[in-house]
Write a protein that binds this DNA or RNA. Sequence first.
DNA 1: CTTCCTGGTTGCATAGTACAACTCGGGCGG
DNA 2: CCGCCCGAGTTGTACTATGCAACCAGGAAG
Lengths: 151, 151
Amino acid sequence: MDAGAEAVETIQREMTSFARRARASAGRLHPELSLVSYTLLGHLEESGGCRATDLAAHYALDKSTVSRQVSALERAALIERRPDPEDHRVQVLHLTDTGRRILAQVTESRRTAFRERLADWPAEDLERFAEYLVRYNAWAGTTVSGRPPRR
Amino acid sequence: MDAGAEAVETIQREMTSFARRARASAGRLHPELSLVSYTLLGHLEESGGCRATDLAAHYALDKSTVSRQVSALERAALIERRPDPEDHRVQVLHLTDTGRRILAQVTESRRTAFRERLADWPAEDLERFAEYLVRYNAWAGTTVSGRPPRR
DNA sequence: CTTCCTGGTTGCATAGTACAACTCGGGCGG
DNA sequence: CCGCCCGAGTTGTACTATGCAACCAGGAAG
C-alpha cells in the first residue's frame, strides 16, 4: 500500500474515532445547550431570525424534531416566536437577549477550549488543517461513512 | 484577528459541523451496523477477542450499554461468547465467521467511500491531513467542545 | 367553496445511553 | 470452611434525540 492509501486509512480511522467521541459528548456540550441546540441558536444569530422549516431543511432534521427543540429553547427563554404578519401559519424565530447571552457564553467557552487545545500548533499547520477540513466537509453530504445521507 | 486565530475558528466550526452530521448518520452507517457496533466489532477483530468490560473501559461506555450492544450483536450472530475457563465470571467475546464477513464488508464499503471522497487530493495533502487528525485526536479527551469528558 | 399545498404540532415507536440494584463467581483473612 | 468484599455481567427504569405518520390550520388556485 502506498503512502497515499495509508493516509486515507488513517483519515478514515481518525474521523471515525472523532465521530464516535463527538456523538458521546454532543449531549453535554454545555449544561445549557446540546450540540444541536447550539447549532440552531447559532443559525438564528447568523440569519437574524428564520422559520422552523428553514432550520429543518438546512440541517436535514425532521420538522418534528426541530419543533420539539424549538419548544425546549422557547421554554428556556432562549428564543421567542413571532407571528409572521404576512403568513399566519409561520412563526419567525428570534433569539432573546438571554439566548444571545447564553450563545455568546458557550461560543466563548468553546473558543477558549479550542485555542487551548491547539495552542502549541504552528500557525502554518493550523491554516493547513483548517483548509483541509473545509475541503473535506465541502464534499457533498458529509457523513461518517463518507457517503451522502439517503433522502 | 491574526491568521492563526482565524484558522482556529475555522477548525472549530468545521469540527462542529462534522460532529453534527456524523451524529445524524451514526445510526445508519450500514443497514447491519451502527457506528458503535462497528467500532466494537473492529475492536474484537484487532484484539482477537476480549471481555465486555474491556470494551466498556476502552470506549468510555457504561457496562450496561456494552452488555446490550453485545446481546444485539450476539442475536445477529456476529459475535459469540465463550466462557473463560480461568474465571467463570468472564465471557470472552469473539467474532463469528459471519461477524468477520460483515465487518469486512462494511469496512470495505467505507474504505471505498473514503477513497472516492479523497480521490482528487494530492498525496502530500492526504498525508498531512492524516497527521493533523492524529495530532488533534491525540489531545487527551477528544470531544466536540475540545474539553475532556467529565467522568 | 373545494381542493391542494405548506408550516407546525403531536402521538407513537425506536435507538442509545446512564444509573442503580442485583446475581454470581473468585479471592482472602480468619 | 466461612464470611466478606470485589469484579463481571444482566436487568429494570428513565431520559434524550430522533423519525414517521397523522393531524390541524392557514393560504392559494380553480
